[in-house]
Design a protein around this nucleic acid. Structure first.
Lengths: 202, 202, 202, 202
DNA sequence: GATGAATGAGTATTCATTCAT
DNA sequence: AATGAATGAATACTCATTCAT
């Protein structure tokens, strides 16, 4: 009567598949990765994958969700010991600085590719919006806290500032996606940071 | 021994094909556009296209080059009557403002898609760099003129400023690519503009 | 050593599975019905089904047998109070008339589909023959009784008449399988009936 | 400017493909026949087939249309020297008698299988109706001519008679599809013929 | 007996590119 | 130069059946 395998087993398997798929996607791209690539990488049968995910598309979506949720949860956890909004923003820039450029490129490519893919498939646009919104709301929350506490200027448009924050990050990642030096990139993050603080400062 | 048709004829035909291909690429995307789509749109045979371009890829590259060169030439033409660097930058932002959001989205998608495509094909990375470099050098030139003339601060890192200029633009375009309102977008361009001027101002 | 569950239990379960499978088969067709469809409909596990039936094919065969036997048993039961052969034939036509056209279509499709399937699989041809033969023998019996009793003409070829009886029925069902009105169909049954009686009448 | 190959060439190729496909369909069945089967049989590339037919389904439809049209055209041609309606009907039965049972079985299976397939695909039901209607209208025409000329009874319902004509034929074919002797079959056609004439006779 | 996760062969269709005419 | 028929590798997803628990 009870399920044949434990929930933990299924969850673990799901994670293993996702991990293998992630490797392939970042290595070759979403479109270029075939199910057979994933099968070979994970060491599982084709059919088994479809027991866990309805489609290649669905694998991507869950992967992106997982990553976004992990990022948010992890950040919020850190924020418990960082009550000052400005410190929270500085923490975010530290995260960017810590991520190796090579890895950023992979993630960015992975991200962009699926975004473009989603843009052509009406049924995915909504899901993408929800995904992107999480990051915006998260940052807006920090901005609002900072405005309330008096750290940032009282007339700050928090939604706009949140948008600008991510625009800058995305634009920068884009610039460095195909070329550019690590050192150079780190300096550009510093520029970004000072730019944002100038914008939000009281 | 002389060519059967004039150079002008060939040049005209090449332009016609490129125009049709551009329409298809921006409409459906680079990967999703088939040669048959282009054939139908241009009203020319499949074989003829391959007389002018070695591959679908080559069509894209030449198209991007053409567009970039046109943008630069056009801007430089305007700059003849805009000797002040700050005015030139303002002119660039006016261009952004004038371009309808819908069109921006198409161009951005077209661009990104090929960038991702190029990123996976080693033989294209150099070509992409050359392409992207043109825009950077162009902006850097304006920045340097402004620094020399005393409009901008003397310690301005012009290369970095040029990078930031395009990063902001790309990041913003990215944010609005899948969603977002036209009005909102125009305000964000204003933000971008003031941000950049704050950064370069003396 | 004795079975873990009673025979009645197994028999009941078998019937439940068959019932669910029948529903799926008539609804979607034999080939289009997946084991998962049946599993969902019956609320039993995939493995359990294979404890009762060796294959999807076997499920169909037993189902057809059951239905044929039920039809024959039911008719013979009625015939106890219908000693006259002509009345028995009229009773058969009444059965046809009573069956809603929609249901007939489903059954016919179900039947034909499996017949075609069987025709390609040598090991099933014999089983199909046995199945079809039951209906022929049944009708032939009635014809012979009628000939013996003098109701029908003495030179009647009962085997041929039985074949014609079913041919007409099948042909009509075929005609109405994809289209045609209920009313029209009922009139055609009347035609069939009078045709058969003209053929067998003394 | 002109097409690369003549219309005759294309028509011939289309016929060759259809012939090969027909062979496979009658041999293995519509669903069981793979595109690769056809490719192997025709000795053409997979892609080439799709230059002539949009899908496997479309191949079938055109095949059935072609056959029906040929049958009708051929019969009408013969009818020029058979002005009497009863003779025309006798001619049709002669056609049935001449077709070897083995071939009838293949055609019948081919037919039925696609009918069942079409029944599940809403977009095909209309096409099927049109197809079936041609045969009905054709027979109805003969019946009406016979009624007008006084050969058949004046109160004959020609549409109904046409339906019965084909019902009988289909029902008989169905009966003999999986089994039955050739000799037996020929006698059953005689029965059918006499049955129909009894029904329509004045 | 029951469960359901795993298997993996099987298949219609697409499309950039070529090349005979 | 232009044409368009031919090529064929490439690919996501299905599903009857098995078997370890």
């Amino acid at each position: 009567m009870s399920p044949k395998v434990s929930k933990a087993y299924k969850e673990e398997k799901r994670a293993i598949i996702l991990e293998g798929a992630l490797h392939c996607f970042t290595e070759k791209g979403f479109q270029a990765t075939t199910i057979d690539d994933i099968v070979k990488h994970v060491g599982i049968s084709k059919g088994a994958i479809y027991n866990y995910f309805a489609s290649k598309e669905e694998m991507y979506i869950q992967m992106a969700d997982d990553k976004m949720n992990a990022m948010l949860a992890n950040s919020l956890e850190h924020f418990k010991s960082l009550p000052v909004a400005a410190d929270q923003i500085r923490y975010m820039y530290d995260r960017f600085r810590k991520q190796p450029l090579a890895e950023l490129r992979k993630w960015m490519a992975f991200h962009l590719e699926f975004m473009l893919y989603a843009a052509r498939q009406p049924h995915l646009i909504t899901r993408w919006d929800q995904y992107a919104d999480k990051a915006l709301v998260f940052m807006q929350g920090i901005m609002e806290a900072g405005r309330t506490s008096g750290e940032f200027r009282p007339d700050l448009d928090c939604a706009a500032a949140s948008r600008l924050f991510w625009s800058l990050r995305d634009g920068l990642a884009l610039q460095y996606m195909l070329s550019g030096e690590e050192l150079d990139y780190l300096q550009r993050i510093d520029d970004m940071e000072s730019m944002v603080f100038r914008y939000i400062a009281g």
